[in-house]
């Protein structure tokens, strides 16, 4: 059974890293978008492995259902109408190396911290029933719950006001 868990972890890891690399490396925006979708599915799988099925389903619902559709709308409304599925000419190699360096330095610093000061970790993830999540949202974390609703509302209204155009 344990090997099965490792196998699943490896598969999700492959989805996350492969999807991420396609999402950042591909010249075609639609292909990059498909890579993002694959990476998000991989993260949802990792949440399942961490014994958090509710959050995994939320990941699929919010990220794949909402955020990705919004990004696809952005592609459709800005690039597709002019037939520009691709980004224009690639950046100069120096800039590409600089951006790779930015990511790599960040990764080495953070990974070094994680490897040097490991926290006490349990082997199996903790099981938290969904009912407890609901009670926490309506109890101690009610303010955060209300605030995120307000933020979502303000973002939606702000987006509508920003793109609204009075008829001439």
């Amino acid at each position: 059974m344990q090997y099965l868990a490792y196998l699943t972890f490896g598969m999700y890891l492959f989805l996350v890293l492969g999807g991420g690399l396609v999402a950042t490396g591909s010249r075609s925006i639609v292909r990059a978008f498909a890579g993002l979708l694959v990476a998000l599915v991989g993260v949802a799988g990792l949440y399942f492995l961490m014994d958090a099925p509710f959050i995994a389903l939320m990941q699929i619902l919010i990220y794949i259902g909402a955020v990705c559709v919004i990004i696809f709308m952005a592609v459709m409304l800005t690039m597709a109408s002019r037939g520009e599925g691709y980004e224009s000419k690639l950046k100069s190699p120096a800039k590409r190396i600089m951006s790779m360096l930015a990511g790599a330095v960040m990764a080495f610093l953070l990974a070094g911290m994680v490897m040097k000061y490991p926290l006490a970790s349990t082997v199996a993830p903790r099981h938290i029933p969904v009912a407890e999540l609901g009670e926490a949202l309506l109890g101690p974390y009610a303010l955060a719950f209300e605030l995120i609703s307000v933020i979502l509302f303000v973002a939606m209204v702000g987006a509508m006001v920003a793109v609204y155009e009075r008829r001439k």
């Binding site: 224009s88 951006s99 990511g103």
Partner: peptide
């Protein structure tokens, strides 16, 4: 894994030319 994902994202933000990317 999370750090790898974060760094790939950072590389993407730096490397892309279009706002959607």
């Amino acid at each position: 894994v999370a750090i790898a994902m974060f760094s790939i994202g950072l590389f993407g933000v730096m490397n892309r030319r279009s706002l959607v990317g």
